[in-house]
């Protein structure tokens, strides 16, 4: 293609540029319209990259390789944060499961508005993801044994505990009691959902109350704590497992490290509030990496059988 042809293709050239074309350097790229044109709804939240870099050791591998390794860094063992869909696929046999109570949705009962309204926050997330709230419940087989699992999605308002999570949790317990099967919860949450004010606080009580019923039915409750688990979630059902398990290196606590640092005005020791720290202080039964998790779980659940 000749230079003339190229020029004619690039039809829009600002007046100033045309004048100085002779003396100044030839521009090979001309931005036609200013600013970003893609509307928010058309944007992809996380573009599916071909490559993935480990935030811990900077090891680079292909995304499919990472997925095959259950989103655990093949080099350093760092556990990438994943959502409910991935956990369900990892734990249920043949990646087969049935989702329950998916129609329960949040409402902005209080008309809560901070920098934006709660309703707007919800609508934004609905437009960006397929998630309906911060917890999904599914039943299926785990190494041939039936189980119901409730798993949080951090992508939905930080996996926050609100009325929907409380209700799904509650119904999942009822389902477990009805079917006489074990109940497992995978926690990944920043804590209670402030936009639901006291209603979110009461979910801590509601979920714990349901665990009391599950206990009376003598059915096992397994709590898996993943990175991160804080506030209202850790201070209620996440810490109440018949067995409490955590993924390696997960940050788990009551108050966030920043708040503690501000309170005591001292630097926090290395490894503070990590899974290994909690294990040392006696709040976890064991730490299980994602690769061996399923088998460990199924051995454990067999021990619970009467």
């Amino acid at each position: 293609m000749s230079e003339e042809e190229l020029k004619s293709e690039n039809s829009y050239i600002p007046e100033d540029d045309k004048k100085s074309e002779g003396e100044s350097k030839q521009r090979w790229f001309q931005r036609l319209r200013k600013n970003i044109q893609t509307t928010t709804s058309e944007k992809k939240e996380v573009p599916e990259g071909l490559w993935s870099k480990c935030p811990e050791c900077n090891y680079i591998c292909t995304s499919s390789e990472l997925e095959e390794n259950l989103f655990v860094c093949p080099k350093c063992g760092y556990h990438h944060r994943i959502g409910s869909e991935d956990y369900f696929k990892i734990l249920f046999d043949n990646k087969e499961f049935k989702e329950h109570f998916a129609g329960i949705k949040s409402v902005d009962f209080l008309g809560f508005t901070d920098l934006k309204s709660y309703q707007k926050r919800l609508d934004d997330i609905y437009s960006k993801t397929d998630l309906k709230d911060s917890m999904r419940v599914a039943s299926g087989q785990l190494n041939g044994a039936p189980i119901i699992i409730a798993c949080m999605d951090f992508a939905f308002i930080g996996g926050s505990l609100g009325s929907v999570m409380g209700e799904k949790f509650s119904r999942a317990v009822d389902y477990a009691i009805n079917q006489k099967i074990p109940f497992m919860v995978i926690s990944k949450s920043g804590g209670a959902r402030m936009m639901e004010s006291a209603f979110s606080l009461m979910q801590m009580a509601k979920t714990s109350a349901k665990l009391s019923q599950l206990s009376d039915a003598q059915l096992p409750y397994v709590s898996l704590l993943t990175d991160p688990t804080f506030g209202g979630v850790s201070a209620s059902f996440a810490m109440l497992g018949d067995i409490n398990i955590a993924e390696p290196g997960a940050l788990i606590g009551f108050a966030g490290p920043r708040i503690i640092k501000e309170t005591i005005r001292k630097d926090l020791p290395k490894g503070f509030q990590r899974s290994e720290f909690l294990l040392d202080h006696g709040f976890l039964d064991f730490i299980a990496d994602r690769i061996s998790l399923k088998d460990k779980l199924s051995i454990m659940l067999r021990h619970f059988k009467v």
Partner: peptide
């Protein structure tokens, strides 16, 4: 306490 909460239920 079980009754506490505000949500709506749509067909999934």
């Amino acid at each position: 306490f079980e009754k506490m909460g505000n949500f709506e239920e749509v067909k999934a």
